[in-house]
Design a protein around this nucleic acid. Structure first.
Lengths: 109, 109
DNA sequence: ATATCATATGAGTAAGCGCTCATATGTGCC
DNA sequence: GGCACATATGAGCGCTTACTCATATGATAT
């Protein structure tokens, strides 16, 4: 069992969830409060907290407390670039959708 | 539900398995026979086939038949670069291992 | 101290996932 | 055709995962 690959696979797995990926995108530009994430994504408080725990455990996000608020941000901001690259890579290589592929980072988040 | 993100999450999820990630790495340099993959990874034939199905369905790999052999290769070879980038990104950003982090692509595969 | 807002946690559940076993399909050779 | 090799497939099973509910913790203000 290669430890490096195992760890890498774990990061992929954590990112391999629609809601979690959404959270990562929300906090990718700037650090965000949990309430921010709740409002932007529309998920329930508990669900957001649940996924944030997974992202914390995988060391993908960090927290900074500021009064009653907790700000979440990416441990490594370049992660978002990698996500974007992957997004491009997959939209280039499957032609079974006819509309122009929307880049992930082109949304309002 | 954003379709682009959903699809991206699905690719992440498929890559988020130790065995599958191993297969991707095996075939990343050059296309490989199923038997090659079996021998290189040490997995059982059924298990390799099982994971190859998932990788096919996610359009991460393609096949080319040559006689009785089926060669598997990455649909988009740049995927391996992205995997490597992510590998570096995570090994840079957690200092709780003291030994020099081994790059994924530095193994013999 | 109590109330309120912000966030986290533990238990429970249903669905999904990884794996194995047995078997099927496909290809080339005799 | 029949055999050997290469690969795929369907069913079944246990473990993990995503989610919700209820509740707990932490911070601030009154």
């Amino acid at each position: 069992m290669d430890r490096g690959i195992e760890k890498l696979a774990r990061v992929f797995k954590v990112l391999g969830d629609y809601n979690r990926l959404g959270i990562v995108m929300v906090i990718s530009k700037a650090s965000r409060t949990v309430t921010d994430i709740i409002n932007t994504t529309g998920m329930s408080q508990t669900l957001v907290s649940f996924h944030l725990r997974a992202l914390r455990k995988a060391k993908i996000v960090t927290t900074r407390r500021e009064g009653p608020f907790i700000y979440y941000s990416l441990v490594n901001p370049s992660l978002m670039d990698i996500i974007d690259e992957l997004s491009h890579a997959i939209s280039n290589s499957d032609p079974d959708k006819e509309n122009v592929p929307e880049t992930v980072s082109s949304r309002g988040w």
